[in-house]
Simulated assay, not measured.
Amino acid sequence: METRILGNDLEVSAVGLGCMGFSHASGAPTEKSVAVKTLREAYEMGYTFFDTAECYTGVNPDGSTSYNEELVGEALRDVRDKVVIATKCGVHHAPDQSLILDSSPATIRASVEGSLKRLGMDAIDLYYQHRIDPKVEPEVVAETMAELIREGKIKHWGISETTEDYLRRAHAVCPVTAVENRYSLMARWHGSLFPVLEELGVGFVAFSPMANGFLSGAYTVDSKFEPGTDYRSKMPQYTPEGFEKSRALMELLGRLAEEKNATPAQVSMAWMLCKKPYIVPIPGSRKIERLRENLGAGEIELSESKIATIDTALDGMELPVFGGSKINK
């Protein structure tokens, strides 16, 4: 499996695995033994970069809590030195699934201890501030992360859903290894950060690289998602209007997939992989066949001219507006 470097020296598989769906936001949590087995199979097939978070939790049928970090930790514990595990702090979900933001130093410190225990690790490879907390200055967050690095609790740190100003201020205090923002053919607004990332030497981890599965082409307007526990039930791309607005894009993806003897999902990620050498998509799936398919995106080559042609076509499309769904990972 091809690898990429985030920041100065964090080597990861070119395609990572977003683990959230095993316990959060994709319907009922996967049964623990099945989740652990699937995560381990992902490693065996070539994934070395796994993304989780303390707030990725769900309720099991017996009423117990499914902690995503525990699943990841159990699956990968005996190959710890061969994988990179990223987790996050600073976000909790209210009962209505709205976000509660808290990046105070005390909360970050309590969170890192909890994550280390759930993961069964001595140090976290990549620790993200999950969302910007308007109550806490970036310099304060960065200094807390610097202290955790000095103490050996974490090895690298990053920011999810950051802005240029926030990134610059935080990076000046403690170098940031990666930002993790939404990015896909349907969500390109964070592309404006690329010149800044190149200037600072920061990697870009793309969450929802297939627009929460939409770009796989596996769903239709009749697809149903569990209300409340599956965030796709409220996402604009999955509405009848969303499917209609996305018709031209899906037709374009279909043509490219046929041309490359690939799948729409693979082409949608190859577009970003071939665009910049520091972009690492982290698609999520609970199905072995999908995990294998997603990994294959790293083998597809798209020329600069082909990428430019795709971008020009996207510029002329009126795609669904994500709005508030930007926050859902």
Rank of each mutant, 00 (worst) to 15 (best):
R188C: 07
G158F: 03
D51L: 08
G191S: 00
M250V: 05
E301T: 13
V15D: 03
G191A: 05
P281Y: 11
K287R: 14
A94W: 06
Q237N: 06
E251D: 04
S303Y: 14
H92D: 13
L119V: 13
K306M: 14
T30S: 06
S115H: 09
T65H: 08
R150P: 00
F207H: 10
L6N: 04
E151C: 06
M250D: 03
L6W: 02
A106G: 14
G27W: 09
L256Q: 01
Y128L: 03
D125L: 08
V84F: 14
K329R: 06
T65V: 15
K234E: 12
E241I: 02
A142M: 14
K88V: 09
R168V: 03
Y67G: 00
T163Q: 11
Y56D: 00
K329M: 13
A142R: 05
T52P: 07
A106V: 08
G21N: 02
V59T: 15
M1E: 08
G152F: 14
A28F: 04
A123R: 03
R182K: 09
Q237P: 01
D133I: 12
I307T: 10
K306A: 06
T52Q: 07
K329H: 13
S103C: 13
S246N: 10
G18V: 06
E41K: 02
T163Y: 11
R290W: 13
C89M: 01
A25R: 03
P95T: 00
E113L: 11
I108L: 15
I154N: 01
P277N: 09
E289T: 09
I288L: 15
A35P: 04
I154R: 01
K224G: 00
M121H: 10
Y238T: 01
Q237A: 12
K224F: 04
K32C: 00
K287H: 15
N261T: 07
P61E: 07
S26L: 06
E161T: 04
R232V: 00
R292I: 13
N261M: 08
F49D: 05
T107W: 10
V112E: 06
G120V: 05
D9T: 11
E318L: 07
V267P: 01
R286L: 04
R255K: 15
P134T: 12
I108W: 00
G7F: 01
T87W: 04
F49Y: 15
P61W: 08
G114S: 12
